[in-house]
Design a protein around this nucleic acid. Structure first.
Lengths: 339, 339
DNA sequence: TTTCGGCATGTTCACGGTCACACACGCCGG
DNA sequence: CCGGCGTGTGTGACCGTGAACATGCCGAAA
């Protein structure tokens, strides 16, 4: 006996057709909700589909329609709370719309790794692209590679506002800064994110705008890297001079590091130093003291992003394009300066 | 003129063949590194590929080979640090191996949403599945749905150790507990994760094992939910009685909430209460005091996971299956009890 | 010299869908 | 009475690729 038990082929549209006593095209029509199908024929086909546990073959469909129904996400630092939240929301919205989501993470922001990631996504024929790699450089590379699918970036970039969807970082930074100024602070430092990040730049811009609008003398921002480690070390350095009463950190992690440094120096928050963060990560409410910060609705961002990509937006609905306004969450790390 | 400028079709293997003066099959052979190709023919084909910017069509390839080269990730709570890190690592490893990664997040752990997520992944013909939805219930559903692709779960589950790859939660929990006992603590509470999470159960098991091995009387674990919020409220409640000197929290977020509550009560860490967390999230080193915790190498987990799935492991190499040992990181939240 | 096996390449077909077109039928208006 | 149209359904081609099989050539073994 040379006959082997061989792997059963998954049922195809023709198998269904045969059992239902119709042509394969009729089955296809049922699957695609074609109007001209007699209800009883349709039911017969559906019964057989159920019986055979027939599942349409995505590859075959993609081949003939040239549509992959896949959205690609190019993401840097997807382990961080914000990007991760957005990705989850994108996936959820995409799935609801019948799309698949495929991700490519880039560990560094050099042109090579960006191009690799994009090529990887492009090779699977994505129909839309979401970029959550917020470095300026990514956009240069994006332009060079002449991406020919619709794309959205989750960062506000003046360069192509048509493709951007973001929380208004500048407004958020101004809120944070205004809050400190309103409390009476006049010597305020700003800890930025990495220079090549769009958000870092925008938050710095917001800080500087508000400071000059209120005629508060500005010190040069301190260029950080988002990590709590950096916040800690920057804090230690700043405290050797201690010519300030407040710090606006451009994210919560660095704010946490700062708080650590402040306490190391034997000082109290907010009595000696006020601190504002940015993002409102879930832990922020439990820092000691609970962190005053700016909340971004990352999930909403992800949802709108898919809607924008798929062009599913009701033209009559409010324009989702553009920015989402963040929200200042005042907690325990800010107060009036002691002197 | 009715002629329209129409969207140019992407070059196919036949276009390449025509320009190179060979058959399409020869081009296919070049693409698939078939040995029997004359070097000059190969070069000619490669030149044309470069010239036309030819990119293989994934759908066509998947159709004919019945291989999607896609790995699916079913993930719950992907916005948390651990899962997010693992996902990123999986994606990286998969990409390096020439695979795509598609994700499905489930927001709740009910059977319906698990089945939905799996169906979504199955519909695209994934070749492998990674489950990072660590609830017990997921595995029940998984069994019912008779998944017929190789899969790995990133949680140790006694139920099917062949498909599990995880950090040894029990060992980690024992390390943490042993550390507290060694410091002299005898009244130790344990704050668990949600009851239906594999990890939560394993950490609790480790805690109980070590306690009884050392003949320390055990109090009933407090059933938590991973959030800092819960840690805070549980802490407040516990402190009304204050019949303990140490708490082992089964994750860092709840530990943070606990620390918050301890300070609210005017107590000091670790003088009055010692706390150990679990995970070593990046922020843990900057809590006040820096958190003693158990480090899990999530990235390594993701990498091994893909290797396991693809069966790419060198049989001669150390067996990657099974568990990874975590590491106790002693920082500032633990010390000898005051009395 | 003949045969045979391996190399390099070509030809044909299959994968599982959708699309364009054909066709049978019944109804309606001129 | 006939042509046209709408409804419901079938037929065949086609998407881009890889596998199976076929072919021609060349060198080594019989």
């Amino acid at each position: 006996m040379t006959e082997e038990l061989q792997r059963v082929r998954a049922p195809s549209i023709r198998d269904v057709a045969r059992l239902a006593g119709v042509s394969h095209q009729t089955v296809s029509r049922v699957l695609n909700h074609h109007p001209s199908i007699r209800p009883e024929t349709k039911q017969r086909v559906l019964d057989v589909i159920e019986e055979l546990q027939y599942k349409p073959n995505r590859a075959a469909r993609a081949l003939v329609t040239s549509r992959s129904r896949t959205i690609g996400i190019l993401s840097a630092s997807s382990t961080w709370y914000g990007p991760a939240s957005s990705i989850a929301a994108i996936e959820e919205a995409a799935r609801a719309a019948g799309y698949w989501v495929s991700t490519a993470n880039i560990e560094s922001s050099d042109a090579r790794s960006i191009a690799d990631g994009l090529a990887h996504l492009a090779a699977q024929g994505i129909e839309g692209l979401v970029v959550i790699a917020p470095q300026v450089r990514v956009f240069d590379t994006l332009e060079q590679l002449s991406i020919d699918v619709p794309y959205v970036t989750l960062q506000s970039t003046a360069r192509d506002p048509d493709h951007a969807l973001s929380v208004d970082q500048i407004a958020g930074a101004r809120m944070a800064t205004r809050h400190l100024i309103d409390l009476g602070h006049r010597s305020i430092y700003h800890l930025t994110g990495p220079q090549d990040w769009i958000e870092a730049e925008a938050r710095m811009r917001g800080f500087l705008d508000e400071m000059s609008a209120r005629d508060v003398p500005t010190t040069a921002p301190i260029l950080g890297d988002w990590t709590a480690d950096f916040g800690y070390h920057a804090g230690r350095e700043l405290l050797t001079v201690r010519d300030f009463t407040a710090i606006f950190s451009s994210n919560d992690q660095m704010a946490l590091g700062l708080m650590h440094a402040v306490r190391d120096a034997g000082l109290e928050i907010p009595r000696d130093v006020s601190i504002v963060g940015f993002d409102d990560i879930p832990e922020a409410a439990h820092f000691w003291p609970p962190l005053t910060t700016v909340r971004q609705d990352f999930a909403e961002l992800g949802r709108r992003c898919v809607a924008l990509l798929l062009g599913d937006l009701d033209p009559a609905a409010p324009d989702y394009r553009g920015t989402i306004t963040p929200e200042l969450v005042v907690r325990g790390t800010t107060g009036a300066p002691a002197f």
